[in-house]
């Protein structure tokens, strides 16, 4: 893919950092998947696993940042090497956030066990999570293969996630209006849906880093949110609409 550096230890440094990114990415993918499953299967043990895994994800982020700082200080990277270092710092931060959202989702599993079940909610949430997990997998593949085209496809898919989220938002609203006893459960479910939607934004940011890494340019168009309805209503309901 890329010629080797004359100084081999420089290549080793860069490979080590990227290996950590891939490892972190693998853990985060597993967390999304387990969090969604724990939810659907009402599996508290699986949820606990997600929580425990988050510590390893955080550790990897620290490791990656330390390594990136060392390379900046000691190797004075330029061009593709510089863009690689800038991108790993950003990508690791995105992965860490996605990990956090998964943990948050898993935490709500035990809470929701004590509440009345809402039709279809768990399976729609799992579908949404699955979609984000697939996007993440594609984004990481694009990253490792240095494939900006594939990254752009991921960026485009974020619209679908937003749309799915908007649909669920309306559904939860309907349930709450139909029967006030649904409110507590629906509020929790909505937080989860919102968190998954935010995960999608972080995946998109990773895909944008792939474009920057490979081309030196930022993806020009900022995507217009297709459906702003829930976003607008949201402001009054979700205390952390835009994080």
């Amino acid at each position: 893919m890329q010629d080797k550096h004359i100084v081999t230890s420089f290549d080793n440094d860069l490979e080590r950092i990227q290996a950590h990114i891939m490892k972190m990415g693998g853990l985060v993918e597993a967390s999304i998947s387990d969090a969604a499953d724990s939810f659907l299967l009402r599996d508290v043990e699986l949820a606990e696993k997600v929580r425990a895994r988050d510590a390893s994800i955080d550790e990897l982020e620290t490791l990656i940042n330390d390594d990136a700082a060392r390379v900046l200080a000691l190797r004075a990277p330029t061009a593709i090497d510089l863009r690689l270092i800038l991108s790993v710092i950003k990508v690791s931060a995105n992965l860490e956030r996605i990990g956090d959202y998964s943990k948050n989702m898993a935490k709500r599993t035990s809470v929701l066990l004590q509440m009345r079940e809402i039709d279809n909610a768990a399976s729609s949430l799992r579908r949404l999570a699955k979609e984000v997990e697939l996007m993440l997998k594609d984004a990481l593949d694009a990253y490792i293969q240095r494939d900006p085209q594939r990254a752009l496809e991921v960026i485009n898919k974020d619209k679908d996630v937003d749309q799915m989220y908007n649909g669920m938002f309306r559904q939860f609203l309907t349930f709450m209006m139909e029967d006030p006893r649904n409110i507590t459960a629906c509020m929790h479910l909505h937080f989860i849906a919102k968190n998954i939607e935010r995960m999608g934004d972080h995946v998109t940011s990773i895909a944008e880093q792939v474009v920057f890494l490979t081309t030196g340019e930022r993806p020009l168009e900022q995507r217009e949110k297709e459906d702003r309805t829930s976003h607008d209503v949201n402001m009054s309901l979700d205390p952390k609409t835009e994080t």
């Binding site: 010629d3 550096h5 004359i6 061009a79 090497d81």
Partner: peptide, 8 residues
């Protein structure tokens, strides 16, 4: 690119 990144 090769030159400034120290590649062969």
């Amino acid at each position: 690119e090769s030159y400034i990144t120290g590649r062969i």
